[in-house]
């Protein structure tokens, strides 16, 4: 996980469902194919929502890691 280099970071900390997902969708539209979006979040639901959404959309969900009091999620645009 440590070697993932994100191209963009979206700060969705403090937001609750469905805003982290909606903002992720918006942010990933601006990336080029193959680029990686990092999402910072505090909603426990994102752990299931983001991988589920990514697989439906065909993006690659690279995983998450815990930071101090929040999570970092990584999605690679298809």
């Amino acid at each position: 996980m440590n070697e993932i280099k994100a191209d963009e970071t979206l700060d969705a900390r403090g937001l609750s469902c469905p805003m982290p997902l909606l903002k992720t969708k918006k942010a990933i539209e601006k990336l080029a194919s193959g680029q990686i979006l990092e999402i910072l979040g505090t909603d426990p639901g994102s752990r299931n929502d983001l991988p589920g959404w990514a697989s439906r959309m065909g993006h690659q969900y690279l995983g998450d890691k815990e930071d101090e009091g929040f999570l970092r999620f990584y999605v690679q645009k298809k």
Binding site: L10, D11, A12, R13, L15, L22, K26, G69
Partner: peptide, 20 residues
Amino acid sequence: LLWELEKFPPETTGFFSAEK
């Protein structure tokens, strides 16, 4: 919600107590 997303660009968001 979708209209709001178009209208207001993503900004830095709130904060939470756990970190501190």
